Amino acid sequence: MLSNNIDYFRQKPSDLAKTTIMLDHGYHPETIQAALEQVYPEIMTKIQFEVAAKLSKSDKAAQGKSGFVPIAVRWVIERSNSWVDRCKNLVKNFEWTLDHARAKLNLCFIRLMVKRLAT
């Protein structure tokens, strides 16, 4: 799966700014880096990993918040995942090929866009 979109980074010139990939504390950047370097050894000249900062209890209290506080950058991805979970066909049925799964995922987002345009 890592090699599917690696062409984007192969075509990206080295003199441009690195692409930052945000991770939360459940991921291990060293493991991901090792797997990517097996596919494309020069990848780390074009990307960098950043682990999202967690708010401490005192930081939450200073902001007047408690409990779960989403990190702004990571929230975009989690929100997209929740939208996909609303497509029951994607949740209940598992596809045999990546092409079929990708097509259903695209249909899910097209459905979401059409619903928003209709209102």
Rank of each mutant, 00 (worst) to 15 (best):
S82H: 13
I43N: 00
I71T: 07
A53R: 11
Q33L: 03
L90A: 03
A101C: 12
L98T: 11
L36S: 06
R86M: 11
L55T: 01
K65T: 04
A72G: 08
I47M: 01
Q38I: 06
N81M: 14
P41L: 03
I71S: 10
Q38R: 09
F94Q: 15
K88Q: 13
K46H: 01
I43C: 01
S66N: 14
A35I: 02
F68W: 15
D59V: 11
W83N: 01
Q38G: 05
K46A: 05
L98R: 08
P70Y: 04
Q63M: 12
K92H: 11
I71A: 10
L98F: 02
K46R: 12
K54C: 08
E42V: 00
P41A: 08
I43T: 00
W75L: 06
A34P: 09
W83Y: 13
N93F: 15
D85K: 11
D99W: 01
I71H: 11
N89Y: 13
A52H: 08
A34F: 14
W75G: 05
K65A: 04
V51A: 08
A34M: 05
V76A: 15
H100K: 12
P70E: 13
R74M: 13
K60W: 06
K88Y: 13
A72I: 12
V39R: 05
D85P: 00
D85C: 09
A52L: 09
A62L: 09
F68A: 13
K57A: 15
S56F: 00
A72P: 12
V51F: 03
S56Y: 03
G67W: 04
Q38T: 10
H100S: 13
E95W: 04
W83L: 12
D59K: 14
K88C: 09
K57F: 06
A101F: 06
G67E: 02
M44E: 00
T31A: 14
I77V: 14
I47P: 03
L98P: 06
E42G: 03
F68V: 04
A61C: 06
K92V: 15
Y40E: 05
F49K: 03
W75D: 08
F49Q: 03
A53F: 10
V84K: 07
E50T: 09
W83F: 08
G64A: 07
V39F: 07
K54S: 10
C87A: 11
R74C: 13
D85G: 08
E78R: 05
R86I: 11
K46C: 00
R86K: 11
K92I: 15
E95K: 07
A61P: 01
A52T: 08
V39W: 08
F94C: 15
K65G: 04
L36N: 00
A61V: 05
Q33M: 13
P70D: 06
N89E: 12
S66D: 06
L36D: 03
I71V: 09
Q48H: 04
T45L: 10
V91Q: 13
E95A: 10
V91L: 14
V69Y: 02
T31M: 11
N81V: 02
Y40A: 01
A61H: 08
H100I: 13
A34H: 12
A52R: 07
S80Y: 07
V39M: 03
V76S: 14
F68S: 08
W83P: 01
Q63H: 04
Q63L: 13
F68Y: 15
T45C: 06
K57S: 14
E37A: 05
C87Y: 10
S82L: 12
A35D: 15
N89K: 15
R74I: 10
K65I: 04
N89D: 10
W75F: 11
I47L: 02
A34Y: 13
